[in-house]
């Protein structure tokens, strides 16, 4: 605490109890000097010792952030122990995560951190106009981040990866439960009609990819109802529905192309016929989905709150008077950026 270093200029009014609530004051020794010189006030004067040399707003923001540190530490810690305690964890490509998109979002957040800092500096220097434009830039970058996140979420939903079970089409392993789920899906009345329609379509009306996929689908339909089904058959079915690119394919960048260009087929049946929506197998995928949506969801909520704060700040004239507010909003925003700095490698690259 540096309080004793402060001296009160002579002639200033004594600090009485009425000013105590201001959250600022003087070190005892100097304060007493001030009183002696200033007004000859010799009664018991209440001196206010500041707890911390910062404003209440900033103090509370930092207290809030320290609770947030623990909140996200618990979330990230949960992710880490779940991930490393799990016997199997999906590779980012198994769950259709795109590293470049994640890196782009990281870049967007870093940029928004810079713009909010620049907004703060401009406001302090009383450049209200540039402060406002930096603030607008921050708001736009934050929205862009959310938009990209939404796009990523949509891609997950498209592949049947949901955090909750009735909607999720992810199975942990190609076992009998998986086989019966595929059978149930293929046996739905609407699906039977749709499949019949597909079977009746003349070959000329389909692309070569679709023709081969139709043949594969036919085989899959036979395999799931085959009474002589082998255990391995369901793995083949799962691979046809949604293939998992292997490490080797990823290393050679082969897996970059949609669905992983391995073996004789390019992409899964679900990709070629999006209406199929067959259950897919991603070992470790259900736990992955829970943690992914939990972590990024809470992060996204924080981003939304930040955007609301920025929108409110934009209603004011962003001069030196609001610099404290901008600083606090900035502290919060940097924290949100900070969380993403850890989320990005943990989710996309590990």
């Amino acid at each position: 605490m540096n309080a004793p270093a402060i001296s009160v200029p002579q002639g200033s009014r004594s600090l009485g109890p009425t000013h105590g609530g201001n959250g600022h004051g003087n070190g005892n020794g100097h304060g007493h000097d001030g009183n002696g010189h200033g007004g000859g006030h010799h009664g018991p004067v209440l001196q206010y010792q500041p707890g911390l040399p910062l404003t209440r707003g900033k103090l509370f923001m930092w207290l809030f952030l320290s609770t947030e540190i623990m909140f996200f530490a618990a979330l990230l810690g949960m992710y880490v122990v779940l991930r490393f305690g799990a016997p199997v964890w999906p590779k980012p490509h198994h769950v259709h995560l795109s590293e470049p998109i994640g890196a782009f979002n990281t870049f967007v957040l870093i940029c928004s951190s810079v713009t909010i800092v620049l907004a703060f500096e401009s406001a302090k220097a009383n450049k209200t106009k540039s402060a406002k434009s930096w603030m607008v830039a921050t708001l736009l970058l934050g929205s862009l981040f959310l938009g990209v996140k939404g796009y990523e979420y949509a891609a997950k939903f498209e592949h049947g990866i949901y955090p909750w079970s009735p909607r999720s089409r992810v199975f942990e392993k190609p076992d009998l439960y998986y086989g019966s789920a595929v059978r149930a899906r293929l046996g739905e009345p609407a699906m039977i009609d749709r499949l019949k329609e597909l079977d009746d379509t003349p070959e000329g009306k389909l692309s070569t990819e679709e023709v081969s996929a139709r043949r594969r689908l036919l085989k899959v339909r036979q395999m799931v109802v085959d009474p002589n089904q082998q255990a391995f058959d369901l793995a083949v079915v799962a691979d046809q529905v949604m293939p998992l690119p292997t490490d080797r394919q990823l290393a050679t960048h082969e897996g970059q192309e949609a669905g992983g260009g391995h073996g004789g087929h390019v992409s899964g049946l679900n990709d070629i016929f999006p209406w199929l929506k067959l259950p897919a197998v991603i070992p470790g995928g259900t736990m992955w989905a829970s943690t992914y949506f939990f972590l990024t969801g809470f992060h996204a909520i924080h981003v939304i709150v930040g955007l609301i704060v920025f929108s409110i700040l934009l209603l004011y004239k962003l001069g030196p008077k609001r610099a404290g507010m901008i600083e606090n909003a900035g502290l919060y925003w940097h924290f949100v950026d900070l969380v993403w700095i850890f989320l990005f490698p943990l989710l996309y690259l590990f």
Partner: peptide, 25 residues
């Protein structure tokens, strides 16, 4: 029994290597 194990990943990888269905039926 119900959780995914490394053997399941191996199974999926093996399934991916089969060219069984790629050939014209």
């Amino acid at each position: 029994l119900k959780m995914a194990r490394p053997s399941d990943v191996w199974l999926m990888e093996k399934a991916g290597e089969t060219q069984l269905l790629a050939e014209p039926a």
